[in-house]
């Protein structure tokens, strides 16, 4: 993979056309061909992702001066982003909600992944397909429909009242952090199920039999063999859910009420109505830095204490 500059060992069965050439020029040729081929998507990502991200960091050190930007270096935006009560509140809440969503999504997803990997028999592909289908329907409408389900006169309240389980409609369901957690856990389900499923289906069945033969009961076998071996999938699932949900905009806006607003809503306001792009940029950079360090800490803890080969 990374034989930088060194001649690659000659591979067998590479075809008659290349076999006659000397090894070193063949590698040079291959490396050049590969780089040439990968350059359009790579340059695109450099220009439209790397450069803009650098720009966001730059602009976060500038100041909005009515319609123009004052380009003198300042930390004022960061000072505001980190000390202002409201901003701190939204940042902490975003992280807290994302952690809850991640925990709920991964815990709920694990048994499904386990079922598909070990008990679905010949219908594995069908189950995986059924799990991914809702993900491809309109995100906006899915979130909106949760509002219909969780609302005061919503499906859930009417259903529970019809069953005689409640006398008054439950009000803690909508327009708060609970609603955001439920809706996001629903939206990200397939992203958690698939990595765990992949990790589980890679486990060598011989190891499970060995554990059983050596006298482990089902629970011990799960805790000592299956779970540790599936940890890479769990870690991947947790990161895939955690990182993007911190920056979710639609769900808090539609079902969160004022108590469920998150950092993305604030960032949008800064770039929109408040017309303070530098502050918005500082908030975005801060959020990404915090999320990034959480992710790194999580991966480090996992490697340190679970010794999972991820």
């Amino acid at each position: 993979m990374s034989a930088q500059g060194e001649p690659a060992p000659a591979r067998t069965g590479d075809g008659l056309t290349t076999a006659a050439k000397p090894v070193s020029s063949r590698f040079g040729h291959e490396a050049r061909g590969g780089l040439l081929m990968v350059s359009p998507p790579f340059v695109y990502a450099l220009l439209l992702l790397a450069a803009p991200l650098v720009m966001v960091v730059l602009i976060s050190f500038w100041t909005q001066d009515y319609l123009t930007l004052d380009r003198t270096f300042t930390l004022a935006n960061y000072r505001e982003a980190w000390t202002e009560e409201l901003y701190r509140l939204l940042m902490v809440r975003s992280l807290w909600i994302s952690l809850l969503v991640t925990a709920a999504t991964v815990l709920l997803a694990y048994p499904i992944a386990y079922f598909v990997a070990f008990h679905a028999g010949g219908s594995k592909a069908l189950w995986l397909f059924l799990i991914t289908v809702p993900f491809w329907t309109s995100y906006l409408l899915r979130v909106f429909l949760w509002k219909v389900i969780l609302g005061y006169n919503g499906v859930l309240n009417i259903g529970l009242a019809g069953l005689g389980l409640i006398d008054e409609p439950l009000t803690f369901l909508l327009y708060n952090a609970n609603a955001v957690v439920i809706t996001l856990a629903h939206a990200w389900a397939p992203f958690a199920i698939l990595p765990i499923y992949v990790a589980l289906s890679k486990i060598d069945r011989g190891l499970l039999e060995a554990a059983e033969d050596l006298g482990d009961g089902p629970l011990q076998r799960f805790l000592r063999v299956t779970l540790p071996l599936s940890m890479p999938g769990v870690v991947a699932a947790a990161l895939i859910v955690f990182i993007p949900t911190v920056g979710d905009y639609v769900t808090p806006r539609l079902v969160g009420g004022t108590d469920g607003l998150m950092i993305a809503n604030l960032i949008q306001v800064q770039f929109g109505k408040a017309n303070n792009a530098p502050l918005g940029a500082a908030l975005a950079v801060s959020a990404m830095a915090i999320v990034g360090s959480f992710a790194l800490l999580f991966m480090w803890l996992n490697r340190r204490y679970l010794r999972s080969p991820s």
Binding site: L49, I240, I267, F271
Partner: peptide
């Protein structure tokens, strides 16, 4: 790096492009 947008929050991608 090409796969990175998959794990970035979309609002970050949107804001970055808007700024540029």
């Amino acid at each position: 790096f090409i796969m990175l947008p998959l794990v970035l929050p979309e609002i970050i991608v949107a804001v970055a492009l808007l700024v540029v």
